[in-house]
Computed example of a mutant assay.
Amino acid sequence: MKNYIPNRTVEYNDNRISKFIAQYGKCAVTGSELGKHDWHCHHKNPYHLSRDDTYSNLIVLHESVYQLIHLKDHEKIKNLIKVLELDKKQIQKINELRKL
């Protein structure tokens, strides 16, 4: 609650906290525990297209996983997958989020 994002809607800020709690403070892809500053609340359907800050459109991810979803450079993607030690199921989840 102390990390309120002022340039976002109240709905986004409320749902972001709720989603973090619902996921028990863990990344939705890796299951790793998240700290205070190493996570990102990601819109499944891009906000610039949908203007959708609803709870169901948000997912809490480790910052590195969030970066991986948005990367386009194949070498950087391969390196980050290797660093994160992702299995096939986790890579599949990331690819589903990339498609959205």
Rank of each mutant, 00 (worst) to 15 (best):
Y12N: 02
K72T: 13
H70G: 06
L61H: 03
K99G: 01
S32D: 14
K82Q: 12
S56N: 14
T30W: 09
Y24L: 11
A28D: 05
K82H: 12
L86R: 08
G35M: 10
G31V: 03
S50T: 15
P6L: 13
K72H: 13
L97Y: 12
K26H: 13
M1F: 11
G31A: 06
E75T: 15
E96N: 11
L86H: 10
L71M: 15
C27F: 04
E11N: 08
C41P: 00
N15G: 07
R16K: 07
L97N: 00
N13R: 02
Y55W: 10
I5C: 05
L97M: 04
D73G: 08
M1Y: 07
Q90A: 06
L68Q: 05
H70S: 04
K78F: 07
T54G: 11
E11G: 05
D14C: 06
S56E: 15
N13T: 10
L100R: 12
L34T: 02
Q90H: 07
E33R: 11
I91Y: 12
Y55M: 06
F20K: 04
H37Y: 12
D73T: 10
I91G: 03
K82S: 15
K89S: 09
N13V: 09
I69V: 14
K2V: 14
N15P: 08
P6H: 14
E33P: 04
S50Y: 09
V29E: 09
L86A: 10
K26E: 10
Y47I: 09
N7T: 15
L84D: 04
L61Y: 02
K78A: 15
H37F: 11
C27R: 03
Q23T: 00
L100M: 07
N3W: 09
L68N: 03
K26T: 05
I5W: 05
K82W: 04
I69M: 04
V10F: 13
R51E: 10
L97K: 01
R16C: 00
L86V: 07
Y24R: 15
G35V: 06
Q67G: 02
D14L: 13
K78G: 07
E96L: 11
V10M: 11
I59L: 02
H40K: 08
S32W: 12
Q23S: 10
Q23F: 06
S56L: 09
I77Q: 10
P6F: 13
N95K: 13
S50G: 08
Q92S: 14
K44D: 01
K19P: 00
I69L: 11
A28S: 12
N7P: 00
L80I: 06
Q67V: 07
T9V: 07
L49N: 10
D38C: 05
G31D: 13
D52I: 04
S18V: 10
I91E: 12
H74N: 12
K99E: 06
D53R: 01
I91D: 07
S32V: 05
W39T: 01
L71R: 08
